[in-house]
Amino acid sequence: MNFTAFYTIVRKEVTRFLRIWSQTLLPPVITQSLYFIIFGTFIGSQISDIQGVSYMAFIIPGLVMMGVINSAFMNVVSSFYSTKFMKNYEEFMVSPASNQAIIFGYVIGGMLRGLLVGLLIFAVSIFFEQPEIANFGIILLFIILTSFVFALGGLINGIFAKNWDDISIFPTFVLTPLIYLGGVFYSIKDLPEVWQTVSKFNPILYMVDGFRYGFYGISDVPVLYSFGLLAGLTILLFGINIYLMRKGIGLKN
């Protein structure tokens, strides 16, 4: 892999999302703060503890993860599609930058935005609830792998996108429902059995659940399953990206 090319893309991506911070960093922090106020404080005060954790504390990991997923995905899809729209993807297509350098460059750029947004949301959550950390390693592992997976997903979406509508279809109609139904606001153990089973087909449940386990040591599904799923998705999506780049799908004529 060409590390200078990789570093160039990461730097370009980070500069981009920091330059337009009011569009990339601020909105998720404001939205999640409203969730903390409405669901955590106003409504949460009337909801009993879940598995020994207050409702406000319960939703914090899910809301952090929601911000991370959306930001990592959207950063890559919108940035990569813009390069296609302005045709400046040709800058790296005509260069000897390897496919790996391009993929890692965009994905790490997206990951960094996701992680920064997650950190900001977590910082805001401290105003509402004292943080508890059961296993910092698991927290780190889940947030890094999740942001990586969704950044890879964003790149696939960006590669296939042919117009601006195409970059919002997946986030709006697939990602958002999966996040909301992925155990951010509730434990699936409180659902009827049939919905528990249905929920287990939602990959985001495992990411949120594993991440929450790192904070409070509670989980709805075994953490090892969650880790296995994330690792599998990472390999699968990376493989798809490499295949698409090699074939030049969506990029070369």
């Binding site: 090319a5 400046n88 040709e90 260069s95 930058a97």
Partner: peptide, 21 residues
């Protein structure tokens, strides 16, 4: 086919980066 929002020097330096410079 450059990013119209970027500065002249950034566009050229980035291209050098893609070539490993």
């Amino acid at each position: 086919n450059f990013n119209i929002f970027e500065k002249v020097q950034d566009i050229v330096i980035q291209q050098a980066g893609y070539f490993g410079i």
